[in-house]
Design a protein around this nucleic acid. Structure first.
Lengths: 205, 205, 205, 205
DNA sequence: AATGAATGAGAATTCATTCAT
DNA sequence: AATGAATGAATTCTCATTCAT
């Protein structure tokens, strides 16, 4: 039905998302100009609106893309690894997948974290909502782990997933501000904190 | 030519800063309307520009005010307490003074932290710059402590002060996001982290 | 090169006109979206431009279609009725034919009348121009009636036709606004007004 | 409190309303450009928004201005004329006042009538709402006349006022389309129609 | 003939800042 | 010092139309 192949459309979308990630990363959500995103992708001003309904939707799509990518890598790693793995190992693999994405898009992730912690409720809802694939993966792991008694189950999985992801974001923030923790030690640190309770150890972050 | 005494001018400035703190706290920097600040202080729209050169300058002044207030409280506490105190105790007192300010202006401090972690280089420079009184106090304590060999001196005091304040901001952020750490446990936590190396355990930055 | 028969093309055109009438009726000219017309006819966005040069042309075509339909019904009624009829009876039959169209497309006729009374000279010219079949029928009746001395001939038939149709539009408008006159009494009312002079009574309509 | 006198502000508002009436009259509501209105009044683009909240509000203000002017002239004529007058004479005077305004702003009144008869319910509500001063004057006259038994009172005065003004608009429309009735004969025509019932005579307007 | 992605000229509105009074 | 009207750059989003496929 379509004369231009769906591939072409997907390609255009990809270019726009790429440009959007770049522009949002450089400027933050507010200061990013929709114009700059579209022309940055090699299109005219209005083209972006053939693919995304609004600036917000575009931002959400970039977030979602990153979330999906991390989840996809996690699944790939899982498939590759030998069969049965502990819940902790799974969470670890998911975090490592996310970090592998972060290594490629650190500036955008900064913006993402910043907007998630922002004060416009709409804005941080926007992020949370489009983080769904990632949150879902976390929740799934936690639900299964809870069933097996391997992890805390003091709250519904979805809520714990949100907490987990929030802590992950904070650790990223900590690293951006202080250089610590390194990306290598981050997963274990997060897991120690999270699995032993929201306020782990005797007080350490 | 000036009919109003310097006192009156200072009073107007105070009202404007108060209103600005309120409005910035409610809306964040970007969304705050200069108009709202001026009328919120009981003045007309343009009056704010008789006291501050720009929205940025106004924001900076509010930041500075908060910084000064914390430092003043710190000094008062110091003066009140008996003479010699350890470096750690001084830093602790300074953090506690800051927390006492935060208890009164938590919403504004949120905005401050957020803007400090923002990506517009100008914006976060703005914050850092106007945090000078506080940073200076930290640096002084650190310099003296280093001279006495009581604290780490692996970097110039000014740099360490920046790190210290950055970690403080992050702990605030952590608390806003996760509820932990409480304001009561926060000072010790920060000092443990900071004095033993920015990245505690064996693994510092 | 044309795979589709002329019939198919005509059919596509018909569907587009139908959809256009619907959309214009619902939204008025300005607010009507070409997109909605094309997809409303079961085609893709751009297809409409294979049949009509512009939104204006499309609107004109819908107007013309309605005009043609009314004239066709008039002729059918005339053919059916016994031969010789007075000029008044003919005009009456034409108006009744128009009303029968209006009963089916009242919303579109509203838009048509509205645009005809609009102030963009282009827009109302557009309507008048495409009303040509109907205006022509009126003018023909008037010309013949004038030759027979049955109707006023104080102006050229084309001008009188325009006046006649303008009055018809106004009576429609009056009915939409006030409920009066009903569609049943409208033809006589118009004929009384028109045939006795543009300003009937010693001047009434 | 204001350094520029209220007179100056009122003067600016007047110029803007004047320009708006001009531009709306030329282009109709939709096609009128806010820009053109502001610059047409000798101001910069944004100035209009210091006086009116939106294009709609501006249009409403022009409508209201015209309504007020007509009412003011009516009151002046009433004051001037000898004391007691019949309800019919009052309505007549009000219509004549409106016509005197129309003579000066015919093009704008055309737009007003057109928008009042438009299909966007919002738009015609906008007109009706800002016609309030005029509608109120009509309703007052009718209420008093009803009390004295001089005029029909088959509906609440406000409803009858709306009907009266609607009929007035239609007669204007009739005149624009057909040249009849003239502005001189229009008042009596309207009063005949209105006072004898919405559909007076045996069917005539 | 049909498709639908791309285009880009606008449009309304916002708001920090200026400056005459 | 205070005022608030004026400014005008800047921004998001719309949509008629084009055209390669």
């Amino acid at each position: 039905m379509t004369r231009t192949s769906p591939d072409q459309k997907r390609e255009a979308r990809r270019r726009l998302l790429e440009s959007a990630a770049r522009v949002f990363a450089r400027s933050g959500f507010e200061a990013a100009r929709v114009d700059a995103i579209s022309t940055g992708a090699g299109f005219a001003k209005g083209t972006v609106y053939n693919h995304f309904a609004s600036k917000e939707a575009l931002f959400g799509a970039v977030v979602e893309e990153a979330a999906r990518l991390a989840v996809a890598r996690y699944r790939a790693a899982l498939a590759e690894g030998a069969g049965r793995t502990s819940t902790r190992a799974r969470l670890r693999a998911l975090v490592e997948a996310d970090i592998s994405v972060l290594r490629e898009q650190e500036d955008f992730v900064k913006v993402l974290v910043r907007e998630a912690l922002a004060f416009h409720p709409d804005r941080s809802a926007l992020v949370t909502e489009h983080l769904a694939p990632f949150l879902g993966a976390v929740a799934d792991i936690l639900a299964e782990g809870a069933a097996r008694g391997e992890v805390r189950a003091d709250r519904p999985p979805a809520q714990l997933a949100l907490l987990f992801v929030g802590m992950l974001g904070l650790l990223y923030g900590q690293r951006w501000a202080s250089g610590w923790p390194s990306l290598d030690e981050l997963p274990d640190l997060l897991l120690d904190c999270f699995l032993d309770g929201a306020a782990p150890r005797e007080g350490g972050p």
